[in-house]
Design a binder for these strands. Structure first.
Length: 604
RNA sequence: UGCCGGAUGGUGUAACGGUAGCACAGCAGACUCUGGAUCUGUUUGUCUAGGUUCAAAUCCUAGUCCGGCAGCCA
C-alpha cells in the first residue's frame, strides 16, 4: 500500500454530520474552521487530534482552517511557542491539507468594512495567488485587541457591561456556588456614562492590576456559573509577545474567542468538552452585539487521553523544567516535536487520529492503537538494514580468512521499487547476544550449542563451540557453515527454524543508538498522586551498535528498520559533527517490532 | 441538594425503529530467509427497571454510575 494513500472510507462523526447538513440545507456555502492554540507550551498528540479534525473538515468539505494564536494572556505566552506551534502544524498537515491552511499577510489586522449596510470588522485568510510563506503568518487574537475593545465599548454603551471594583476574592464570593445563586455586585448599577469613562481609563492605564474589571451584565442567579456576570476584561500591566507594551488591558478567553471566530468568518468553532458550559456565553456575546454577518457556532468533542502518557501542558512543562527529559522535543514526550524526533511520521499521526474517532465520551485510548498506526506506516516505508545492538562474535571456521562476499539484499520487501544494496559477508561476524542461548527454553529457535540457524541473506551455520573468557562470559562462538546453503545455493532450501541478523566484523560501523521505552510505568500516570512517581527509570538506554556499511549513508528524511529489532530514525544531533569533524551516527528507536516471542517467553 | 454532558465486548468506535458491525488488544492456526509483515478462524458487548411498538442500542418514564463547571487561565 502506498504510504501517502488516504483511508478508504471518509471519516464520519457527529461533527462532520453537522457540517454536511449545514452545507446541504444552505446554512453555509463555505466551511471555515480554525485551530486556536494558546502559545504557552508545545503542541502534543492531543492537539494533533484537534488539528486532524479541523483541517480534515476543511479538506473534506472544500473549506479553510485558520491557524490562530489564542494569545490573550501576556503573562503565560511566548514567541518560542508561536514558532514551535506553527512549525508543528505545518509538519503535521504537510502533503495532506497544506492547501487548507488559513494564514494572513504579516502584520495585517482586521479591516473595517460594511456588511449588510452595517459597520463590520473582517479578516479573511489569503487565498488565490500563492504568496511566499515568509510573507504570511498565523492569525493572532491579539491582532483584534482594537476591535475587541470597540465591541466591549458597544456592550457597555448598551448597558450590557459594567466596570466592577470588587477584588478578585470578593468577586469569587459574590459569584455564589454551583448550587447557590450569586449576588449582584454593588457596582452593577453604575451609570453607562461612568462605565464608559472608567473603561476608557482602564485602557489608558490609570489603574493598577486587579483593581477593576469589565463584566458582562447577565444574571447572577443563573444556574450556569459562566452566565453570572463573567469578567470580560482585566488589567495587566505586562508586555505582550505580539503587541508589546501597547496594552495594559486584556480580554478574557470567553470574550475574545467568539469574536475572533466572528471576525475571521469561522462557521464551525470546534473545541473540547470543558467549554460546553461556556457555550451559552459564547452565544450571548455574539447575539448581543449588532453583528451583520453569520454567527459562528461552537461544537465540542472529547479531548484525547492516551494510556501511559500525560497530556497536561503544565505537567509536560514540569518534565522539561525539572530536566526529567531533555526538552519539549525529547523523543519520549507525547509532543508533536517529540514524536517527530522519535521518527514518527505525520502520516502515522493522521492515521491514528482517524482511527480513534470523534465523540463526546471521555475515553482512555489504548497506546497500542498509536503503536499500531506507527508500525503500519513504518513497515510500508522503512528501508531494512542489518544492525547488532549487543554484539557477540561468531567465527565461521570453515570459511576462508580474508574472503569477502557481497550479498544482495532488498531495501524493502514491502516495496520492490526501493531497490537493493550489497551487504559484505566475511569469516567473522557479530550477532545479537539474545540470538544465542546455551540452555534455551522450549520453543527457542535461534542459535544454541550444536544447533543450526540461518544468517539472513547468507549461510546456514552450526554452532560447534562456545568460547568463554576467564570470568565465564561468552567471548566467541565458533561455527561451521553449510557452504552450499547461501541464498540461491544448492542446499538453500533446507529448512532451519531460525533466521538471525548479523554484521561483518571487519566492515561494521559504529552508531549510537538510543533505545526509548514508554515514559511512564502505569496506564494513567496522573490519575492520582504525583505523576512523577510513575516515571519509567528505563525509558532510555543508549548502546553502541555494530551496523552494516549501508547504514553510513542514512538520511534524516528516511526511516529504517534494523531487521528483527525495530524502526529507527536519524536524530538531529547526528548532524552536529563532533570535534573530530567526522559525522556521528545517532539513531532513535521509534518503536520495536511486534515481538510475539518475547511475550511467549515471558508467559512461560 | 444546582447546571451541562456522557454510558455499546478488555479498549475505542459504528449502527439515526428492522441481521449489533469495524479497529485495537487477546486466543488458535497457516505462511514466512525478519518469532516482522501477510492470511484464516475465534472468545467477549447495548448501565438498570419499567413502558410504547409486529420490532428498541435507538423512542418515553424513573433510576444508577461516570465526566465537566465556582481563574481577573485557556
Amino acid at each position: 500500500m502506498n504510504s501517502e494513500s488516504v483511508p478508504a472510507a471518509a471519516p464520519s462523526d457527529f461533527i462532520r454530520d453537522i457540517v454536511a447538513a449545514d452545507l446541504a440545507n444552505g446554512r453555509h456555502t463555505k466551511i471555515h474552521t480554525r485551530f486556536p492554540p494558546e502559545p504557552n507550551g508545545y503542541l502534543h498528540i492531543g492537539h494533533a487530534k484537534s488539528i486532524c479534525l479541523n483541517f480534515g473538515i476543511a479538506r473534506e468539505f472544500g473549506g479553510i482552517c485558520n491557524l490562530r494564536m489564542d494569545d490573550t494572556n501576556p503573562t503565560k505566552e511566548d514567541v518560542e511557542y508561536v514558532d514551535s506551534i506553527t512549525a508543528d502544524v505545518r509538519w503535521l498537515i504537510q502533503g495532506w491539507a497544506d492547501h487548507c491552511l488559513g494564514l494572513k499577510p504579516k502584520g495585517k489586522t482586521p479591516e473595517t468594512v460594511t456588511s449588510a449596510g452595517k459597520p463590520d470588522f473582517h479578516l479573511a485568510p489569503v487565498s488565490g495567488i500563492r504568496q511566499p510563506a515568509s510573507d504570511l503568518e498565523p492569525f493572532y487574537a491579539s491582532d483584534y485587541f482594537d476591535q475587541l475593545y470597540e465591541y466591549a465599548l458597544q456592550l457597555t454603551r448598551n448597558g450590557l457591561a459594567y466596570v466592577c471594583d470588587l477584588s478578585p476574592e470578593e468577586t469569587e464570593r459574590y459569584r455564589g456556588s454551583p448550587d447557590r445563586p450569586g449576588q449582584d455586585s454593588p457596582f452593577r448599577t453604575r451609570s453607562i456614562a461612568e462605565n464608559v469613562d472608567l473603561f476608557e481609563r482602564m485602557k489608558a492605564g490609570e489603574f493598577p492590576d486587579g483593581t477593576r474589571v469589565l463584566r458582562a451584565k447577565i444574571d447572577m442567579a443563573s444556574p450556569n456559573i459562566w452566565m453570572r456576570d463573567p469578567v470580560l476584561y482585566r488589567i495587566r500591566h505586562s508586555e505582550h509577545h505580539h503587541t508589546g507594551d501597547q496594552w495594559c488591558l486584556y480580554p478574557m478567553y470567553d470574550f475574545a474567542h467568539c469574536l475572533s471566530d466572528y471576525i475571521e468568518g469561522i462557521t464551525h468553532s470546534i473545541c473540547t468538552l470543558e467549554f460546553e458550559v461556556h457555550r451559552p456565553l459564547y452565544d450571548w456575546i455574539l447575539e448581543n452585539l449588532d453583528l451583520p454577518r453569520a454567527l459562528p457556532r461552537q461544537f465540542e468533542f472529547a479531548r484525547l487521553s492516551l494510556g501511559y502518557t500525560i497530556m497536561s501542558k503544565r505537567k509536560l512543562m514540569r518534565l522539561v523544567n525539572e530536566r526529567l527529559v531533555s526538552g519539549w522535543d525529547d523523543p519520549r514526550m507525547p509532543t508533536i516535536s517529540g514524536l517527530r524526533r522519535r521518527g514518527v511520521t505525520p502520516q502515522a499521526l493522521r492515521d491514528f487520529a482517524y482511527n480513534i474517532g470523534i465523540t463526546k465520551y471521555n475515553a482512555l485510548t489504548d497506546v497500542a492503537v498509536l503503536e499500531k498506526a506507527i508500525r503500519d506506516d513504518l513497515n510500508a516505508r522503512a528501508w531494512r538494514r542489518l544492525a547488532v545492538l549487543r554484539p557477540i562474535k561468531l567465527v565461521i571456521t570453515n570459511y576462508p580468512e580474508g574472503q569477502v562476499e557481497q550479498l544482495e539484499a532488498g531495501n524493502n520487501p514491502e516495496d520492490p521499487a526501493a531497490g537493493t544494496r550489497q551487504v559484505p559477508f566475511t569469516r567473522e561476524v557479530f550477532i545479537e547476544r539474545d540470538d544465542f542461548m546455551e540452555t534455551p527454553p522450549p520453543k527457542y529457535f535461534r542459535l544454541r550449542p550444536g544447533g543450526e540457524v540461518r544468517l539472513k541473506y547468507a549461510y546456514i551455520v552450526k554452532c560447534d563451540e562456545v568460547v568463554k573468557d576467564a570470568a565465564g562470559n561468552i567471548s566467541e562462538l565458533r561455527c561451521t557453515a553449510d557452504l552450499g546453503s547461501k541464498t540461491g545455493g544448492p542446499t538453500a532450501g533446507r529448512k532451519v527454524k531460525g533466521t538471525i541478523h548479523w554484521v561483518s566484523a571487519a566492515h561494521a560501523i559504529d552508531a549510537e543508538v538510543r533505545l526509548y521505552d514508554r515514559l511512564f510505568t502505569v496506564p494513567e500516570p496522573d490519575a492520582r498522586g504525583d505523576f512523577k512517581a510513575h516515571l519509567n527509570p528505563h525509558s532510555l538506554e543508549v548502546v553502541t551498535a555494530k551496523c552494516e556499511p549501508a547504514v553510513g549513508e542514512a538520511r534524516p528524511e528516511l526511516r529504517y528498520q534494523f531487521e528483527r529489532l525495530g524502526y529507527f530514525a536519524l536524530d538531529p544531533d547526528a548532524a552536529t559533527d563532533g570535534a573530530s569533524g567526522k559525522p556521528r551516527l545517532i539513531f532513535n528507536r521509534t518503536i520495536t517490532l511486534k515481538d510475539t516471542w518475547a511475550k511467549a517467553a515471558q508467559k512461560s
